[in-house]
Amino acid sequence: MTADVGTQLRKGVVESCVLGLLSTEPMYGWQLSETLVRHGMIASIGTLYPMLSRLRAQGLVSTYDERSAAGPVRKYYELTPSGRQQLSDFRQQWASFAIAVDDLVGKDDS
């Protein structure tokens, strides 16, 4: 049985996608989840929080609490300087990786 290629690709890049989202603005978990689900990067919010914990433990994101007018206090996630560097490194590597894959896989001639 072969693994779903899309699933394997998502697993490899979803953490970098989280860093990319957080590079634009701090976000709370539900906000991140909705964006990632909408883009097909995760299936549900249940997979997001363990990932955010790993990113925090690696020093790539930090958190702060902020009161919400719509309910309870929200935990916001933001990039650390290490997270910004990790994202920059990913962007550089991704560009050359995508070119190499395209060259190797080629265009579909059918």
Rank of each mutant, 00 (worst) to 15 (best):
P26L: 07
T80S: 14
V73I: 11
Q85D: 09
T35K: 06
P81E: 15
R54M: 12
M27K: 12
A69V: 10
M51I: 10
I45C: 09
Q86C: 05
E66N: 10
W30P: 01
S33R: 00
V37R: 14
Y28D: 15
P81R: 12
Q31A: 06
T63L: 05
S53L: 12
K75D: 11
K75P: 08
G20A: 12
Y49V: 08
Q86E: 13
Q58G: 03
T24H: 09
T47Y: 10
Y64E: 12
P72R: 10
G46F: 02
T35I: 07
L32V: 06
I45N: 10
R74W: 08
V73S: 09
A57M: 11
T47W: 05
G29T: 15
M27D: 02
G59W: 01
A57P: 02
L60F: 10
E25V: 00
M27C: 07
G29W: 02
T80D: 09
K75T: 15
V18C: 10
Y49D: 13
A69I: 05
L87R: 01
V37P: 03
S82T: 07
S44F: 11
I45W: 08
P72A: 14
T63I: 11
H39E: 06
S82L: 13
T24I: 11
G46L: 08
E34P: 00
L36Q: 07
L87K: 00
K75M: 08
